[in-house]
């Protein structure tokens, strides 16, 4: 145990995800000992991020304004919406530069065992966005794990009543990997979603 405020700093750092007691101690001493480390800047950014950042009223992405920069961009294609679980997924898809439409962040996936049902996600807001018939395609890009697939199944069933094309991201072999190391579930999916090349 360290004295007073040093221990308090270690305890507070240790509450962050992925930081154990040893890492917390190392970061605390880095802050204490490194003169070039600008503490006031870190402190002001932390305060600012809590005060200014909120969720986009349209898509649920993180933003500093009422709506996010993607929803404000008039050059984007209004006929397609990509549904993702978290704001982090928006960034991942944006990095591909493949998708030019809008996003909708659900805020998680359906997981009854964790007490998360469809009502706890931003599904109602999605349905409202689809009501004006502008959107022609909904791309479901939830995680390819069990909860993500279940959410996709639920959304597909819900959207089948509307006259909108519903697509799901393909899953299969990772680029640069070896076929022999692929597990049977992934390989099976890759077979299922194979495409014609000639």
């Amino acid at each position: 145990m360290y004295e007073g405020i040093v221990q308090e700093l270690i305890d507070e750092l240790g509450r962050l995800p992925g930081i154990g007691p040893k890492s917390a101690q190392r970061i605390a001493f880095h802050i204490l000992q490194t003169e070039s480390f600008d503490v006031s800047r870190l402190a002001s950014v932390l305060v600012e991020v809590r005060e200014k950042v909120r969720f986009c009223e349209i898509c649920g992405n993180v933003t500093q304004e009422v709506t996010c920069s993607i929803c404000r961009d008039p050059r984007r294609d209004a006929t397609s919406i990509c549904v993702v679980e978290e704001a982090k997924d928006v960034v991942a898809i944006e990095r591909t530069r493949e998708f030019k439409g809008f996003y909708h962040v659900l805020g998680g996936a359906i997981s009854p065992i964790d007490g998360i049902g469809p009502d706890n996600l931003r599904i109602r807001q999605l349905m409202t966005r689809l009501a004006d018939n502008t959107v022609q395609e909904v791309i479901i890009a939830t995680d390819p794990n069990l909860e993500g697939e279940a959410t996709a199944t639920y959304l597909t069933r819900l959207l089948s009543s509307l006259e909108i094309k519903v697509t799901r991201l393909a899953s299969g072999l990772p680029v640069g990997g070896d076929l022999e190391y692929a597990d049977e579930v992934t390989l099976g999916r890759a077979f299922e979603g194979r495409r014609t090349v000639s």
């Binding site: 009854p112 069990l146 697939e149």
Partner: peptide, 22 residues
């Protein structure tokens, strides 16, 4: 090593998924 992959068929249907979760 997989012995039975029931997950894919279960999540195909929402009532089956919620029943399996319970």
């Amino acid at each position: 090593e997989s012995l039975g992959s029931y997950g894919a068929n279960i999540v195909d249907d929402y009532p089956r998924y919620t029943a399996a979760s319970v």
